[in-house]
Amino acid sequence: MEQIQFKGFVVEEHEDRFIRSIKTRSISDLPENDLLIKVRYSSLNYKDALSASGNKGVTKKYPHTPGIDAVGTVVASDTAKFRENENVIVTSYDLGMNTDGGFGQYIRVPSDWAIKLPEEMSMKESMIIGTAGLTAGMSVFRLTEHIKPEHGKVVVSGATGGVGSLSIAILAKLGFNVSAISGKKEEHDFLFRLGASEILDRKDFEQENTRPMMKTSFAGGIDTVGGSILDNIIKSTQPMGVVTCCGNVASANLNLTVFPFILRGVSLIGIDSQNYPMEHREIVWNKLSKDWKPDNLMKVCTEISFAELSDNIDLMLDGKLNGRTVLDLEA
């Protein structure tokens, strides 16, 4: 077993530069954990792009193999929880951050990080969903605990990104009237195909508004970017509405008063996709494999090979990707 060799995408630090390459690795290079998995698919996330660029806030030590998502087959198990030849999904926790991740053909992880692949879901579908879709699912799950389609429009920011696009697709399937916030005019057709009923210009939400509250426009919202966009969504949410937040690419700061919360009863719910409890993950994955699985799932996916991975990382950092990018580790 220790002699098995495999391909992996490796990021190495050389003085002030970070070099990416495809290298041959060995099972013995992997950390000691109780579950060895042969990876079939992974997916590209913004956190992976940061890790592959030498961001020490994501990955502390190099050389390193990113990939916070993985699906594959159990090769060896030291736990009764999983058997050999079972198909499993691993997302988030420390995978791909400081533990070698899904951009390698094998991973070795704690069994507590893994979940059985639902029977109704293919391996590829699970990685189109991945951490982004799980985050979207968590957001929808918390939102729909309080908001129903008849309550009014819901708004989604970062609409062309992984979390945003899948949130739109899930909400539309559930019958919601979805407003998508985007600054990319060239992606309007893509957003309408996902199920958005209207597209709102990102510039209108990026501007700082000093008013404590704004005209009510939404029953709820899913924010993926933070900053002024989140401020303005909260200020525009109707009484007893709910907004979830899961990102801070625009800013980690909120600049607003308590008035939306104490005068309108608006609720702000944070989504922690990295350490979300496994019992709740199982609920969300089950929903995503059945009633919540977007009908147009394949339309939000671009499939790539190892050879295309580095270029796609650069495109992601430049904000030039939409939907989900899935890595086929056998291509």
Results as ranks from 00 to 15, higher is better:
225 V>C: 03
166 L>P: 00
141 F>T: 03
202 R>C: 12
163 V>L: 06
183 G>K: 04
179 S>F: 04
184 K>F: 06
254 L>V: 06
133 G>C: 02
128 I>G: 01
182 S>C: 09
134 L>A: 05
226 G>F: 08
136 A>W: 01
238 Q>R: 15
145 E>H: 12
135 T>R: 08
131 T>F: 00
185 K>M: 04
208 E>Q: 12
185 K>V: 05
167 S>M: 05
262 I>D: 13
164 G>V: 05
236 S>T: 07
150 E>Y: 04
233 I>V: 12
148 K>A: 14
264 R>C: 08
221 G>M: 02
141 F>N: 14
202 R>V: 10
261 F>A: 11
253 N>V: 09
131 T>N: 02
206 E>L: 13
257 T>C: 07
195 G>M: 08
211 R>T: 14
270 G>V: 02
213 M>I: 15
177 N>F: 07
270 G>W: 07
213 M>A: 14
144 T>F: 12
257 T>L: 07
269 I>T: 02
210 T>N: 15
260 P>S: 11
230 L>K: 08
156 V>P: 01
262 I>M: 14
152 G>I: 13
149 P>F: 05
180 A>I: 00
270 G>S: 10
223 D>R: 00
189 D>R: 09
229 I>A: 04
225 V>Q: 04
247 G>K: 03
136 A>I: 00
272 D>Q: 11
198 E>K: 12
238 Q>E: 14
185 K>E: 15
127 M>I: 06
153 K>S: 13
197 S>H: 10
137 G>R: 05
208 E>T: 06
149 P>I: 10
214 M>A: 13
205 F>T: 01
189 D>T: 11
223 D>Q: 04
163 V>T: 07
248 N>Y: 10
176 F>P: 08
219 A>F: 03
169 A>K: 00
224 T>V: 14
271 I>K: 06
130 G>A: 15
148 K>P: 12
196 A>S: 09
263 L>V: 14
211 R>K: 15
181 I>R: 00
205 F>P: 05
237 T>E: 08
186 E>M: 03
149 P>S: 05
236 S>N: 12
256 L>C: 08
163 V>G: 06
187 E>V: 03
233 I>K: 11
241 G>L: 14
209 N>D: 15
208 E>A: 14
161 G>C: 01
155 V>H: 07
167 S>H: 09
141 F>K: 04
204 D>Q: 14
208 E>C: 00
187 E>C: 04
267 S>V: 04
262 I>L: 15
222 I>F: 08
136 A>E: 02
154 V>Y: 13
249 V>P: 01
233 I>R: 03
224 T>A: 02
204 D>N: 14
173 K>N: 10
227 G>K: 03
243 V>C: 10
147 I>R: 03
134 L>C: 02
183 G>A: 10
127 M>Y: 09
180 A>T: 05
166 L>A: 03
129 I>S: 02
136 A>L: 01
155 V>Q: 02
133 G>P: 03
162 G>Q: 05
248 N>K: 10
205 F>K: 00
259 F>H: 11
259 F>N: 07
204 D>S: 12
156 V>Y: 00
167 S>Q: 00
148 K>W: 04
214 M>K: 15
171 L>P: 01
142 R>S: 11
169 A>C: 09
198 E>G: 02
195 G>P: 05
176 F>K: 00
242 V>F: 05
148 K>L: 13
132 A>I: 02
232 N>Y: 09
247 G>C: 06
270 G>A: 13
240 M>V: 02
232 N>F: 10
209 N>E: 13
199 I>L: 04
